[in-house]
Design a protein around this nucleic acid. Sequence first.
DNA 1: GAAATTACCGACCGACGGTCGGTTTGTCTA
DNA 2: TAGACAAACCGACCGTCGGTCGGTAATTTC
Lengths: 189, 189
Amino acid sequence: MNLKAERGAATRDRVLTIATRLFAERGYDDTSIETVLQESGLSRGALYHHYAGKEALFEAVLEATEAAVGVKIVQAVRGLKDPAQSLRAGVLAWIRLAGDPVVQRIVLIDAPSVLGWERWRALEERHSFGMLKSALQATGAVPPEFLDLHAHMLLAAVNESALLVARGGDHATAEAAVEEFLRRLLAHS
Amino acid sequence: MNLKAERGAATRDRVLTIATRLFAERGYDDTSIETVLQESGLSRGALYHHYAGKEALFEAVLEATEAAVGVKIVQAVRGLKDPAQSLRAGVLAWIRLAGDPVVQRIVLIDAPSVLGWERWRALEERHSFGMLKSALQATGAVPPEFLDLHAHMLLAAVNESALLVARGGDHATAEAAVEEFLRRLLAHS
DNA sequence: GAAATTACCGACCGACGGTCGGTTTGTCTA
DNA sequence: TAGACAAACCGACCGTCGGTCGGTAATTTC
């Protein structure tokens, strides 16, 4: 089980790359399986052998995208000791990464409605949300009973400003605004 | 031009009501025009005479829903003098209203991906976002250069917690968490 | 070398959103 | 009030799309 498994994996990768580009460029609805087939040179049957359907293909694309983002955020935070500083660095890194149209369209726009809120939330838990929550906890600035909710609210707020930046908003102002936002949240009075 | 105009308006209203229910129950994608036709007793041609397409129908549904929500929020805030208190009351009212599955699915889940982010944002500006922004401005707690961004972030955060409550989260805790969140944001140090 | 597994193929299907030519039914005006 | 006009409504038809299915070829396993 070697040559065959490799060929299969290579095919899946190829489809994944192409699908990622198409989903990002046109969005989920306006990307037809037919187009994916044409651009990948694969047959219909072959694609459905590897992916259960269009939705499953999207989920694979989303998973891969989020994983890649996660790696980059970890890199941005590496070495920082102060929890508040880590949180700040991670959030800013995420905003910059969300400038990528691929991330925007796939992760921030289409994901919730395609997967449904429940599955989307479960997937987020394993990626950006999970990271942000533990970072927020480490700061100790939020009471435990509010930790989960505040983490959710903060992530939503950060995602929103990422979208605003991506859509022509001023980068510097947005980052300053987010920093101020964070500062206020972490200041327990 | 009376009997005719009335009949037309009545038909539009009927379709709108039915479509609202279906979109809320099944989501946009899983609601077929065919079903709307059957439940309304209307013919295909008639529906396309009144609405340009499925997307236009959804937009009409969304517009009506947001307008209704807006009215109720205004009622909740009426009479309050202190800007911070108005903001707080409006936000809490919005969270309670977002407990309605209709509002959830249509306004918070499907709207961005169906309309596209740009058109969705423009529509929000005329409704919840517009209200929240002016309320936030009235408190004077946010520097002008951050007002727009902070209003966006705050709305996103509140929407997120509304979704969490709606999906089985504890109502009381969520409201307390949102109040704390708001308190920190408004406290300028 | 036979059996089993996997990659891949492409004709076909049902559902769906949307179109279009046409009919009916009020309304306005000459 | 007759006739032009427009709005409301009808339903057969179309193209596209996601998904199915019976099958072939190639590789691995026993």
